[in-house]
């Protein structure tokens, strides 16, 4: 007796109960914290955690499970942001519609990229994605009539829910949590569901996958589209949180790197790796910038960059792998449980 859309659940529970528990617990904790926290700084921190966890989880669908490393997710992110912002300031349309358009654009871009990915092997595919962010940044900077150029787009400070401008910052947090929930759901489905196992197979070894009757291209496109669409949504939300958008904070390479860093350090093999990464890294980032902002700018960048390098070379499974090892040692069980590694095989 299975609930439609959740047929993957029993299987996933058997494979990786810890991950499912974590994936349920964290958003709930964030929600409760968001409801009770008095301090707006805390709410902001929670928002950042939820937002980036969602984006990194979305990225992982494509880059982790799907085996298609994307170094240009900022392109999707920025499309959502600019579409939302410009629809409000330019046409007076509700940004909800604008962001929907942004998502559609992001999905179209993703489909093109996915088609190109058929012909490109790993590092070349990564290179192509690498230029995506800068390409859009260049367009945004120079297409001044549309985007306001490097001056950016400022959003009004006051508005109503149709313009996605909320006085109560908590509401952004709730939306971000909703996004995170959707991202986690899709990640589960695209890892343990029918399409999921197909996606991982296609990402691992397309020839074998096709010999099993798996429509490799279709499955890959689904993964990429989901990843891009979610990221665009997040980008749109972020734009209306910050109320200012310029080519740098929309399409900048720093965004793409941040996403990859969170996902990889967290662990790309698990649905909750990126979530774990965000939960740990974002607060550290905030702490570092609060404590050292004036005196040591960019400290978190240095630390995270080096950490990424370290994790990739020394602990390829990321934090998830470490947690699993510790857990199995504590509980005296052998080996690493039934959850297997996917995605980023680094050796």
């Amino acid at each position: 007796m299975s609930v439609p859309g959740f047929d993957w659940l029993p299987f996933a529970w058997k494979q990786d109960p810890g991950a499912l528990a974590f994936a349920t617990a964290v958003p709930v904790i964030l929600l409760i914290a968001g409801l009770v926290a008095p301090d707006p700084q805390v709410v902001d921190l929670l928002f950042q955690v939820a937002l980036w966890a969602g984006i990194a989880t979305a990225w992982n669908i494509m880059g982790g499970f799907g085996g298609q490393l994307s170094l240009g997710h900022s392109a999707f992110y920025g499309l959502g942001g600019y579409a939302g912002a410009l629809s409000l300031t330019g046409i007076g349309l509700s940004p909800i519609l604008g962001i929907a358009i942004g998502v559609a654009l992001a999905v179209m871009l993703a489909l093109v990229v996915g088609l190109a990915g058929l012909r490109l092997r790993g590092p070349f595919f990564a290179m192509v994605t690498f230029v995506m962010g800068p390409a859009f940044q260049a367009i945004a900077t120079n297409w001044t009539r549309l985007t306001g150029g490097s001056g950016g787009v400022s959003l009004p400070l006051r508005g109503d829910w149709t313009s996605l401008i909320f006085g109560n910052r908590r509401i952004y947090l709730f939306i971000a949590l909703g996004l995170l929930a959707v991202a986690l759901y899709l990640a589960c489905r695209l890892r343990y569901g029918r399409t999921g196992i197909h996606l991982v197979a296609a990402g691992n070894d397309p020839e074998v996958a096709s010999s099993l009757g798996i429509p490799v291209l279709r499955v890959r496109l689904i993964g990429i589209a989901a990843s891009a669409g979610l990221t665009a949504l997040a980008g749109g939300l972020a734009a209306f949180y910050v109320l200012f958008l310029d080519p740098e904070n929309a399409f900048g390479a720093g965004i793409s790197i941040k996403i990859v860093t969170i996902a990889v350090i967290g662990g790309t093999s698990s649905i909750v790796g990126p979530l774990l990464g965000a939960v740990v890294l974002i607060p550290i980032e905030q702490f570092l910038s609060n404590t050292f902002a004036g005196r040591i700018p960019g400290l978190s960048g240095i630390i995270f960059g080096l950490l990424l390098m370290f994790v990739v070379l020394a602990v390829p499974g990321g934090m998830v792998r470490i947690v699993r090892r510790v857990w199995s040692r504590l509980s005296g069980r052998s080996a690493v449980g039934t959850a297997a590694r996917t995605g980023v095989e680094t050796s």
């Binding site: 590092p123 790197i257 040591i296 700018p297 240095i302 960059g305 080096l306 680094t346 050796s347």
Partner: peptide, 23 residues
């Protein structure tokens, strides 16, 4: 190491160096 590791490791290093330079 595989290509994936090379890309990610050098990406991480590049990010760290950018921030170091800024610092």
């Amino acid at each position: 190491a595989g290509h994936l590791a090379q890309i990610l490791a050098t990406l991480g290093l590049s990010y760290a160096l950018q921030n170091l330079a800024q610092l």
